[in-house]
């Protein structure tokens, strides 16, 4: 199938084509860029929700329930669930969708698991493109789920308009979350497994922390208690998500969008520049020569880099 045809089928909402398109993205297939340029114009309609939090807090179960709740409201939903690849073998278990398996056969839901493939920077890019595919295919809501494990995953989740940080009492989650740097990015904090002891304590702790951080933003992050496994608190959570969306639509959305587009553009630009320089270098085996010179201390890395750039720019002019 050509990329044009694939893009056309994605726009029609064809499930097999959506799946294929995401595979192209994951494999960084040469056709990806052309396909994305077809799809990009048609995106921008979905509400993108990021869900993150430490392992064991019940994220996947919660996402499953959120999807159900959105389906009750007649919204179509896409889910991207990100799981880590093994740094040793490159293999991965993509286990998040198990919690949502009963939704698999619902035509209004599309769930896709993605592995990090040991390339978190690249994954942020791939996730954005996968979200764009789901967006262009006409999904009303797109949920991106990832383990809040560090800066790179924070980058992934930043694709979202509304970010949910999920924690569970008693796991020492709060501390992990601070370490992972996800406390700063949350719009809504969810204390899941709220039937456990210390749930109220966790709520208070989060609120205290948020007050210390609170400053200029208009949106004051809220804390919601859920027991996802029983579906409790989920409709209240969806209300808060809706509130946040309305808040964004009042104006914040535009600035947030601009910020995201700026980051995205810079990322792509950087990647493109990097690729064009490196590809040239590697093709001509100049790379090794330069490295040897640096190794022999004939030249310093700074001068070597500037030389490469100057040469490339000159070539382009000629």
């Amino acid at each position: 199938m050509s990329y044009e045809e694939l893009a056309r089928m994605v726009l029609k909402g064809d499930r097999r084509s959506i799946a294929r398109a995401i595979t192209l993205i994951e494999n960084n297939h040469p056709k990806t860029q052309q396909m994305m340029s077809q799809l990009y114009r048609h995106g921008g309609n979905a509400h993108i929700i990021g869900v993150t939090g430490p392992g064991g807090c019940g994220k996947s179960t919660l996402v499953g329930k959120l999807v159900k709740e959105f389906r009750h409201k007649n919204k179509t939903v896409g889910v991207i669930a990100v799981d880590p690849s093994s740094p040793f073998t490159g293999g991965a278990f993509l286990g998040d969708r198990i919690r949502m398996q009963e939704l698999s056969a619902d035509e209004g839901v599309f769930i896709r698991s993605m592995a990090t493939r040991n390339n978190l920077g690249g994954l942020a890019r791939a996730t954005k493109d996968a979200v764009c595919v789901l967006d262009a295919s006409g999904k009303d809501v797109i949920i991106v789920e990832t383990v809040g494990a560090g800066q790179s995953e924070v980058d992934i989740i930043k694709v979202a308009h509304t970010i949910l940080v999920v924690l569970a009492p008693g796991l020492g989650d709060e501390i992990q979350a601070i370490k992972a740097g996800i406390m700063e990015i949350g719009d809504i904090f969810v204390v899941n497994k709220a039937d456990r002891e210390n749930a109220d304590r966790a709520v208070i702790d989060i609120r205290t922390m948020l007050e210390m951080n609170s400053g200029k933003q208009e949106w004051k992050p809220v804390v919601v208690k859920t027991i996802a496994i029983e579906g409790k608190g989920v409709s209240q959570l969806v209300e808060k998500i809706e509130e946040h969306r309305k808040y964004l639509e009042k104006g914040a959305f535009a600035s947030k969008r601009r910020e995201q587009v700026e980051t995205e553009f810079f990322e792509v630009l950087r990647q493109k520049i990097e690729e064009s320089f490196l590809n040239d270098l590697k093709k001509k085996r100049e790379f090794d020569k330069i490295l040897e010179k640096i190794l022999a201390r004939e030249v310093d890395p700074y001068t070597a880099a500037e030389n490469v750039i100057a040469k490339k720019l000159k070539n382009n002019k000629d």
């Binding site: 179960t61 278990f93 286990g95 198990i98 919690r99 496994i229 029983e230």
Partner: peptide, 10 residues
Amino acid sequence: YGEYKELIII
């Protein structure tokens, strides 16, 4: 009582 959802550990 609700239905149990398996916790999968591989």
